[in-house]
Each structure stands twice: as structure tokens, then as C-alpha cells.
């Protein structure tokens, strides 16, 4: 097998990462493995923009706004690179970013709570906002959108169930 990063040297190790509940695997040569940063290294999230790009391309329900008036970044570029161009992009692409923010952060805004915020209640808040969105889109008869929101809700319900299950608890919350 050939390294999936450089496409030249033979692959020697399987590199696995899980970001935002998505598992990706790559076969790498040791040279690229070192560059990917795990040989005793602490390079963080070398693939973060790539993971963001993947998530953005997969969320179909909100049509992309053509362009940010401040920096010229368009939806296509955002989907390809996973990078915003400037602070204003966050306003321009607000709706498009929400599914990604929910998936990665289990939140869509920055509102740190002072009390201890456990993973289950964070997911519960995500679910609440999605359920509100769902009834809203049903009321507006946007059925395609409603269907994809329903898929998202199922995914988070599954995550929540896993979090509350005894098996996860074993090494997780209440070992």
C-alpha cells in the first residue's frame, strides 16, 4: 500500500483520528507520519480545516451565500478549504456554519456557563434547538430541510444514548 498523503512512499502505519464524532483513517509512510505530527509530537489538529471542509460539504440543507462583502470568500471556497476569510464571514455564513458548530462543539454560540456543564446536558441543549428548528421548518413546509434536521436529531439522540449507557460510563463519567 502506498502512503495516502505523499502518494510515493510505502505506507507503514495506520493513522486514525476522531474529530467531532467522525472517524477517519489514513495509511501513511513514516516520513509523512512524522509530518502529521504524532511521532512524539504535539502538533494539534493538523487536519482541522480538512475535517471542517468535509463537514461543510456534507451539510446540504442551507444554501450557501455567494460571497462575503468584506473579504470576497465565497461558499464554494469555504466548503473546499474549511477556512473563513475574515471575522465578518461568521455573520455572512452564520446559517451554513451552524450544523458544523453543533457537531464539533455541541453549541452554536459562545456562552460559557458558570456551573458545571456536563456532556449530556450540552447535547440536550443542542437537541432542543434542533427540535425548535424542525417544527419551524415543518410549519413553513420546507420538507427537505425538515428531513435533514430529523437526521441530525437522530444522530445526536444516538450520541446522547451512548453517553448515558453503562458501557460508556465504565471508562467515562462514573467509573
Amino acid at each position: 500500500m502506498i502512503c495516502q498523503r505523499c502518494g510515493k512512499r510505502p505506507a507503514e502505519v495506520q493513522y486514525t483520528e476522531m474529530v467531532g464524532g467522525q472517524k477517519t483513517m489514513q495509511w501513511l509512510c513514516s516520513e509523512c507520519a512524522r509530518e502529521a505530527g504524532l511521532l512524539l509530537s504535539l502538533k494539534l489538529h493538523p487536519m482541522a480545516p480538512a475535517a471542517a471542509a468535509k463537514m461543510l460539504s456534507e451539510s446540504e440543507r442551507a444554501p450557501f451565500v455567494p460571497k462575503c462583502p468584506e473579504c470576497g470568500t465565497d461558499g464554494e471556497t469555504l466548503r473546499r478549504t474549511g477556512l473563513l476569510g475574515c471575522p465578518n464571514c461568521y455573520e455572512v455564513f452564520r446559517r451554513q456554519l451552524e450544523p458544523l458548530l453543533r457537531s464539533v462543539h455541541h453549541a452554536v454560540d459562545h456562552n460559557p456557563r458558570s456551573e458545571r456543564d456536563d456532556p449530556v446536558s450540552r447535547l440536550e441543549r443542542v437537541l432542543e434547538s434542533l427540535r425548535r428548528e424542525l417544527s419551524e421548518s415543518v410549519r413553513r413546509e420546507e420538507f427537505e430541510r425538515a428531513a435533514s434536521i430529523r437526521d441530525e436529531i437522530r444522530r445526536y439522540e444516538k450520541e446522547k444514548a451512548e453517553l448515558s449507557s453503562p458501557e460508556a460510563d465504565e471508562e467515562g463519567e462514573d467509573a
Binding site: 486514525t16 476522531m18 472517524k23 450520541e159 453517553l163
Partner: peptide, 11 residues
């Protein structure tokens, strides 16, 4: 993973 951590490693 379920607790929303990123895990990187070679295995």
C-alpha cells in the same frame, strides 16, 4: 470519542 474528545494515534 463519545465524550467529544479528539484522539490521535497510530494503531
Amino acid at each position: 470519542k463519545v465524550l467529544n474528545y479528539t484522539v490521535r494515534g497510530f494503531y
